[in-house]
């Protein structure tokens, strides 16, 4: 399967998206919402590329590279003046949303956007609506957060903005967020995230805090591993493994 990107003939593998193929062959396409471990979302609109119509008739179509499957004979352009203009437009909007974000500022500058032409948001947060947290939460199996609102009011939120019941407090959303927009505070045996306080398991061997009780129950339910296995922290698991080996050796 041969796909022509920017005039280069490239071998695509079955199941490749245009983004997969471009990344593998060293062609730079900017993205904000793409994450290798998560389902493609196609939400940031930065990976837009031009795809030629079959037979070369008519104007090229603009498609997101992350969602567009590679097909034999496809002609793709990733850096035309039109694409440049479209990406600059997206970044102009994002800069109005997150004027203080380094990620957005740097990308915008690459596309010649020094300042947003829109009105900067008052009290901006760091969220760029990439949806990585939402998809990470879904991958974990909790599905506790989602997108809410539209346009300038768009945000990542709990159901009805105030129901954290489905959250297990694993913290994957906060840790995988590329801009650090989600607050997670660990204080002793308490973790605060998404307006809720979670109790962290006290390691039955050393007494240090480990994962949250809800996360432990969630993992035991999903993985078939025993609930007791989540009562010991990783360091103590290892020390106990050592002790077990010693026992076996009669040292």
């Amino acid at each position: 399967m041969i796909v022509v990107i920017n005039g280069r003939d490239l071998h695509a593998r079955p199941g490749d998206s245009l983004l997969d193929l471009a990344r593998r062959t060293g062609i730079d396409i900017p993205t904000l919402c793409h994450h290798e471990g998560l389902e493609e979302w196609g939400g940031c609109r930065l990976c837009l590329v031009e795809v030629g119509r079959p037979g070369g008739h008519g104007a090229a179509r603009v498609v997101p590279a992350c969602l567009f499957p590679a097909r034999d004979g496809l002609r793709v352009d990733t850096d035309t003046p039109r694409i440049h203009r479209l990406r600059a437009g997206v970044l102009d909007l994002l800069l109005a949303r997150c004027p203080e974000s380094d990620t957005i500022q740097e990308l915008a500058l690459q596309y010649g956007v020094r300042r947003t032409s829109f009105v900067e948001r008052k009290n901006p947060d760091k969220c760029i609506l990439c949806n990585v947290c939402v998809r990470a939460c879904a991958a974990v199996g909790a599905n506790a957060i989602g997108t809410a609102g539209r346009g300038v009011l768009g945000e990542i939120a709990l159901p009805f903005h105030d129901d954290p019941a489905a959250c297990v407090g694993c913290g994957a959303c906060a840790l995988s967020c590329p801009t650090g927009a989600i607050e997670m505070v660990d204080t002793g045996f308490t973790r605060r995230i998404w307006q809720r306080d979670f109790e962290r398991v006290r390691c039955s061997a050393c007494g240090r805090p480990t994962l949250t009780r809800d996360h432990a129950a969630h993992l035991a339910g999903r993985t078939g591993l025993s609930a007791e296995s989540f009562q010991v922290c990783d360091r103590c698991h290892r020390e106990q493994a050592g002790a077990r080996f010693l026992d076996l050796l009669g040292k």
Partner: peptide, 28 residues
Amino acid sequence: VAEDRCILCRACVWACPWGNVGYDEGRK
């Protein structure tokens, strides 16, 4: 560990019965 696929849920850290998977808090 394929770091670009990881979402840092740290389930592996808690699940390994030998404690052989670690999490580097500083470097995430």
